[in-house]
Amino acid sequence: MAQEQSALELEYAIPPRQRFNPLKWARREPFGAFGFALIIFIVFMSAAAPVLRTAPPNEFAVGPPLAGPNTENWFGTTARGKDVWSRVLFAGRISLKIGVATVLLGTLGGTLIALLSAYAGGAVDFAVGRIADMFIAIPGLLLALVLHSSISADLPDLPGLQREELYLVVAISLFFMPGTYRIMRGIVLELRESTYVEAAQVVGSSSFRIMWRHIAPNMFGLMIVITSISLPAAILAEASLSFLGLGVPIGGLDAVPSWGADLSGSSRRFFSVAPWLAVFPGLALAITVFGFNIFGDSLRDSLDPRLRGRI
């Protein structure tokens, strides 16, 4: 009897949880580790911008106009004598801030809507699905332009997020949210039919408890993957909108440099005579996006067994 019981325990024993070993993961996913290192580098440079800067990023005439990279101005100066190095450093802050805020809102919002609507099913799920279809059908840039002219002036200043920044977050999130909803809805529909959810229903668990304790935790891995993949796209979207003049505040002592804005505006007309105006903000943007992309790619491989190493 004791022997039968120990055999049974052996059969149903839950395997011990494997501890995450970063070094082991890095060896297995060198690209991902490299991407993570790039992210850390960018975050560090942005965070340390007030220390690493050589001049206030918005200060005019800190050097001669259109000076090339030199010992005083490491990345050169703009046509109005602003220091490109300092601007590149500070611009990372807005890119990361908008990127993270956007992805958090877009991913969490999309996941929450998917959880509620897919679990509820029926008319609710159908209606939400069609609304998502509607948003997906509208080109993202057009949506951002419409939002800019319709709601941007009415948004409030939030702590740590100015009105213009909030507009960017809302505009870009609305672009990402329907996609996240679509992916997450499929997962919820699958999980809703699983045996442990049925079991929970049988023992009388409330819908909220089932969603919160049994379904949501199983969506977490995919949510991280979506976040890591959406982040570079969000950063690029911020750069694109800033490029079009719809981005962060452009003037004043509190104005925030943005890679996208610095790649547009009056700088563009000097790119051929002062290529550093395009190269350094462009490089910073490319490195950030590249880092997040390959990190997210590896994360997806690690967390989704179906995708490991396959096309």
């Binding site: 918005n58 005019f60 109005r80 003049g245 452009i250 003037g251 004043g252 002592l253 104005a255 505006g265 009056s266 700088s267 563009r268 007309r269």
Partner: peptide, 20 residues
């Protein structure tokens, strides 16, 4: 208006000068 790029620089300078 967002029309002329140099306009941004002028307004930016103006805002900085007045704020200081």
């Amino acid at each position: 208006s967002t029309g002329a790029p140099l306009q941004h620089e002028i307004s930016d300078y103006m805002a900085q000068s007045l704020a200081r």
